[in-house]
């Protein structure tokens, strides 16, 4: 059953349409990420849920209550900002308790909640410090506790980890998910980082130019992207221009090399593109699978994986292999044969 519902939501700034025809149902306790590049409308959508922007048209409802024109301070929606937005004049404890204080909660209840939240973020010892005395990661933890202290019906996070360095980002990502699952709070998370979205979310909404490109679980988004944009934006992908050989059987060719597409609709139009992830490719030749031969153009070490870039009939194609000790790495200019299963590729 839908808990938070966005129906036909549209937002324009003058003649620019920031969000168009946005429809989404979110279940209670679900963790949904809005993923997309800068300017795709993900933050604008989040801000409309928070009440900081009014939709040009459409409706936002929470548990069947229309929120669309309710001011932000009446929505009971907690928000965490990229820049932390802690009140510099207040201590950690005062920041966490601010929402309870302004809504007139009794002092005893406020103090108990502050203590509970400090325990949740493991910062009991820091309760008397000012924000300027904390690290970025600690500040964001306090911001999270402050947003959760009011017991919001929905938690909104606007790129909360973007300002942090890589190691702390990873730590805090796990902590956000742990806290979200522990409290079972419905969460919307805005990010442009695909790894964050894939690792945290129950569902991902991929957005581009104000529109929803695809909604699905991380696995669906990664393994079955419905559009070229999603395929390109989430993970690495090879897009090979191919010509149709047999429209009914899904047979296509690159130069003179025949390939079989795993998924294909109506194969109309030439040329079309065959999509395959770099990690689906293996060195060698397997009868009955798709096989391609080309020349090694470049080799890149990316830590745990090695990316081998090939030229196949004038088209670049990448293959990712685990950087194991037994790995034999070809040299640039070598002839190289790669193979991939039929079900690992599809027509876009």
């Amino acid at each position: 059953m839908s808990y938070l519902e966005l129906s036909n939501v549209k937002k324009s700034f003058g003649t620019t349409i920031a969000v168009d025809d946005f429809n989404l149902s979110i279940a209670q306790g679900e963790f949904v990420s809005f993923l997309g590049p800068s300017g795709c409308g993900k933050t604008t959508t989040l801000r409309m849920v928070a009440g900081f922007e009014l939709p040009t048209s459409g409706q936002i409802s929470l548990q069947d209550k229309n929120l669309t024109y309710l001011p932000p301070n009446k929505r009971n929606v907690g928000m965490v900002f990229q820049s932390y937005a802690l009140f510099p004049n207040m201590t950690v404890a005062d920041n966490i308790g601010y929402g309870l204080k302004v809504t007139g909660k009794p002092k005893k209840e406020t103090n108990a909640r502050i203590k509970e939240m400090l325990g949740l973020i493991h910062m009991e010892e820091q309760h008397n410090k000012f924000p300027s005395q904390l690290s970025g990661g600690q500040q964001q933890r306090v911001a999270l506790a402050r947003a959760l202290a009011i017991r919001p019906q929905v938690l909104l996070l606007d790129e909360p980890l973007s300002a942090l360095d890589a190691k702390i980002r990873l730590e805090l990502r796990l902590e956000i998910r742990r806290i979200q699952q522990q409290l079972g709070i419905t969460t919307i998370y805005v990010t442009h980082d695909q790894e964050e979205a894939l690792s945290l979310s129950d569902r991902i909404v991929v957005m581009s130019k104000g529109k929803m490109e695809q909604v699905g679980t991380p696995a669906q988004i990664y393994t079955s992207p419905e559009t070229e944009f999603v395929a390109n934006f989430v993970g690495q992908i090879n897009l090979l221009p191919v010509k149709v050989v047999s429209p009914t059987q899904g047979k296509v060719k690159v130069g003179e090399q025949i390939l079989q597409a795993g998924k294909f609709g109506h194969l109309n139009g030439n040329p079309i593109r065959l999509a395959v992830r770099p990690e689906e490719l293996n060195h060698g030749f397997i009868e009955g699978a798709n096989n391609l031969s080309g020349k090694v153009e470049a080799i890149s070490y990316l830590g745990s994986i090695v990316r081998i870039r090939l030229d196949v009939e004038g088209n670049p194609i990448s293959m990712d292999v685990f950087n194991e000790r037994k790995l034999t790495i070809p040299s640039v200019g070598d002839d190289y044969q790669v193979t991939f299963p039929v079900e690992a590729c599809w027509i876009i």
Binding site: A50, N73, G78, M79, A85, L86
Partner: peptide
Amino acid sequence: TLTEAAQSLGA
């Protein structure tokens, strides 16, 4: 951002 943070907390 400070204003929005306070608003979201009910101020």
